[in-house]
Design a binder for these strands. Structure first.
Lengths: 91, 91
DNA sequence: TAAGTATTTAGAAATATTTCTAAATACTTA
DNA sequence: TAAGTATTTAGAAATATTTCTAAATACTTA
């Protein structure tokens, strides 16, 4: 909720990479963490930022928490950027 | 040069507003500043960030420095976001 | 219930960001 | 050249961000 939150979330390389991983499908926090050289606590922090920006959502299953990409907010960002470029038009 | 720089630049409300002002055409640093409740030095700082992110460029004329929007980087950002949503497709 | 696995939360330390004031630069015109 | 206008740079202070370690929570299964 709010462009600042979204852009700030997207400004970190680790968080962008998390989104790219999630593009292929849901992953648990642990799975995500295995791709990074960071502690689980730090991964958890980044996931929280992404969650707060509504860029991902979670679903709990058994002992895991699975994270998924949420495309809705990305659309809004695209619209904002579009309006900047063309004044709302095509190009 | 680099998504981090671009998204970081876009994460600040004042900087986004500067881009929106610039959408209508070039403005001097002073003109831009008149829209904000900040010192000229702070405006200058934000302009530097936007410049470094290649979101704007400047042209000197007389005693003024005029700033203009640079749409090129916005395209790149749009592509990155697009690839996240659809894997490169339409939706 | 007890022990184990997955993840988050709390708190601290290091670093980055934002803003200001004061001074410096750059250019214009009298 | 001198004085004025526009803008940036330097340095400091306040705040925010990122990362860690240690502890807490939540759930599962023996």
């Amino acid at each position: 909720m709010g462009y600042a939150e979204t852009f700030k979330a997207l400004s970190d390389p680790a968080r962008r990479q998390i989104l790219e991983l999630l593009k292929k499908g849901p992953l648990s926090a642990g799975d995500i963490g295995s791709h990074f050289d960071m502690t689980g606590a730090t991964i958890s922090y980044h996931l929280k930022i992404l969650k707060q920006a509504d860029l991902i959502f979670e679903s709990k299953e058994k002992n895991f928490i699975y994270y998924q990409l949420n495309a809705t907010v990305l659309e809004e960002i695209m619209l904002w950027i579009s309006s900047l470029r063309g004044g709302g038009k095509d190009d």
